[in-house]
């Protein structure tokens, strides 16, 4: 039996948004100290690694390790039905083939919305107007969600069942590495740089020197360069730019993938870039005290 309740269900919504364009299918690995996801994109150029520690949940129970294979697009569709303020509880039986997701609204107002929602759906087991029934079950009848799962409504709770699948994913061992360069900067600023650079070309060079971090792109249109300097004493923590450098590093990367990574921007105000010569970059978004989402991207190398 696995059961985990996240008061801030938004984190789960944002996490799936942050990986669904990169990976189609993945396993949620549950253990008694965390839930984690590791998956590569189809072309095996990048990898996403998620960790949410059990301590970050307000209820967490995992009797034995479980791997829950899911389709990211389908999970994203179901999570879109959760409000940003909803608490989300995940539940799975040890030998089950579905993941139950329970969304609970923060206040009673949502119950009223809910009745309308339920009456609007076809195939209800209970007659319309039976909002005072404890529980009723509705076949999913929304075009976008057909075949994805079943929705059960219990008063102020929405319970969705996501079909699970067996996924034989290749797990990679990622060595602990002392990176030569660590850059911490506002995640929004990083997103903006990646977006702007994509206008000019498809390959980004990131170069870290004593001067600061230089993001550069060369394309048919022209060239672009952005220099970010250390700013460790900014008033707000999230505005700080901190650069730790043992030696200068310059690497080049496909902007297409970096752009996928910036889908995680909403998860936190800060992004951390780790680089060493000739190895994949790590783009990490810390998620409060709960965990992180890290992306690894292989560099472009000289032919």
């Amino acid at each position: 039996m696995f059961e985990a309740r996240l008061t801030s269900g938004k984190i789960l919504k944002q996490l799936i948004e942050a990986l669904k364009d990169l990976v189609q299918e993945a396993n949620i690995d549950c253990s008694d100290d965390e839930i984690s996801i590791q998956a590569m994109d189809n072309s095996h150029v990048s990898l996403v690694a998620v960790s949410l520690r059990s301590g970050g949940f307000d209820h967490f129970r995992c009797d034995r390790p479980l791997s829950l294979g899911f389709n990211a697009t389908n999970m994203g569709k179901i999570l879109k039905c959760a409000g940003n303020e909803d608490a989300i509880t995940l539940k799975a039986e040890d030998d089950g083939d579905s993941l139950s997701m329970v969304f609970e609204g923060p206040n009673q107002d949502r119950i009223a919305d809910f009745g309308e929602f339920a009456r609007g759906a076809r195939g209800s087991d209970s007659p319309p107007g039976s909002r005072r029934e404890k529980c009723w079950k509705i076949d999913f009848n929304f075009a976008t969600m057909r075949g994805v799962g079943v929705l059960v409504v219990i008063f102020d709770r929405k319970i969705y069942e996501l079909k699970l699948m067996d996924i034989d994913s290749e797990q990679l061992g990622i060595p602990d590495t002392d990176y030569k360069v660590t850059i911490q900067m506002p995640s929004g600023e990083f997103q903006r740089i990646i977006r702007d650079m994509q206008v000019l070309g498809d390959t980004l060079s990131i170069s870290c020197t004593k001067e600061g971090v230089k993001f550069g792109v060369q394309g048919d249109l022209g060239t672009g360069n952005v220099l970010i300097r250390q700013n460790a004493h900014a008033e707000k923590d999230e505005d700080r730019v901190m650069i730790e450098m043992e030696e200068p590093v310059e690497l080049t990367f496909a902007l297409r993938y970096l752009n996928f990574f910036t889908k995680a921007t909403n998860l936190g105000p800060t992004v951390i870039l780790n680089m060493s010569p000739d190895v994949p970059i790590v783009v990490e978004y810390p998620i409060g005290e709960t965990g992180h989402i890290k992306y690894y991207l292989a560099p472009k190398i000289d032919e």
Binding site: M40, S43, H44, V45, S46, L47, E170, Q171, L172, G173, I174, P175, T203, T252, A254, V279, P280, Y296, A298, P299, K300, I301, D302, E303
Partner: peptide
């Protein structure tokens, strides 16, 4: 020119 490296060249399968 530069070509895209694959991730498997850096990380071993578990």
């Amino acid at each position: 020119g530069k070509k895209q490296a694959g991730l498997m060249g850096f990380f071993a399968k578990k």
